[in-house]
Nucleic acid binder design. Structure first.
Ligand code: MN
Ligand code: MN
Ligand code: ZN
Ligand code: ZN
Lengths: 124, 124
DNA sequence: TTATTTTAGCAACAAAGTTGCATTAATATG
DNA sequence: CATATTAATGCAACTTTGTTGCTAAAATAA
């Protein structure tokens, strides 16, 4: 069973308290004296496996993490749209926005990553 | 003006001759004695800027490259679906599949990356 | 053919992520 | 509450991916 350590609690708080998705580097800056950077990687993995947070790959390939409302619920999914602003750099979840996929029937869909890049509402 | 060197021609041939998208590492394996790995990065950048190929970010964050039919045409775009098989690892373009986005009007969309992960037709 | 400009190679560097192992902390059990 | 058990952490070392500066070598223009 997974243990709730100080570092894990702190990192989950940071992610849940953020309105935007955060990179490992951004989390590291906020946890300077809490734990090692390797520990952050391991805690992020654990939180993803425990469905507390989800992983978002930005259009540039950089991995981000966010907690969304559905995360805590069972039978949840993260198939929503993410928006990455090229001006302010913020990566935001659009939890109410999903899409329809029409792939050939032989294809079994497990998950998808949809990240839209452009200029956000604040920056336009 | 961009110059058509041996390495650039060879790399474009490899990408155009492939039915699946290729990573820098995969391209490097096929160009062992052709050129340096830094040169491959620079050629890939050039080919993207010249709209000969396009860049796809996989669900794991790994960058892939593919040439699609629309690439050579002017006013083309790469807003199509990509499928990443978790069994065979192949990343395929679905050039005929696009999606509808309904973001708030203040959001200006520039590009998107949509990669679906699951089991492909061959592996299911 | 020679001048000009782009491209290539090389070394060095940086960011992101992984692994092994000894130590420390959290939880379970008596 | 004490201690055994197991999970988490820190640290060092390493890998992968990508970038930058600079000189040498090619490609194209004149
Ligand atoms: Mn999200
Ligand atoms: Mn494609
Ligand atoms: Zn913005
Ligand atoms: Zn497959």
């Amino acid at each position: 069973m997974s243990r709730n350590t100080i570092a894990k609690t702190r990192i989950l708080e940071i992610i849940q308290g953020s309105s935007i998705a955060l990179t490992h580097a951004a989390i590291q800056e906020q946890t300077r004296d809490v734990c090692d950077r390797v520990t952050i990687y391991r805690i992020l993995d654990r939180l993803v496996n425990e469905n507390e947070i989800h992983r978002i790959v930005n259009v540039n390939g950089v991995v981000n993490f966010a907690a969304c409302k559905r995360c805590s619920h069972s039978s949840h999914h993260h198939d929503h749209i993410h928006f990455s602003c090229i001006k302010c750099g913020e990566l935001t979840c659009f939890e109410d926005q999903s899409i329809d996929l029409n792939l050939p029937s032989k294809y079994i869909i497990q998950e998808y990553q949809l990240t839209v890049a452009g200029i956000c509402g604040k920056c336009s």
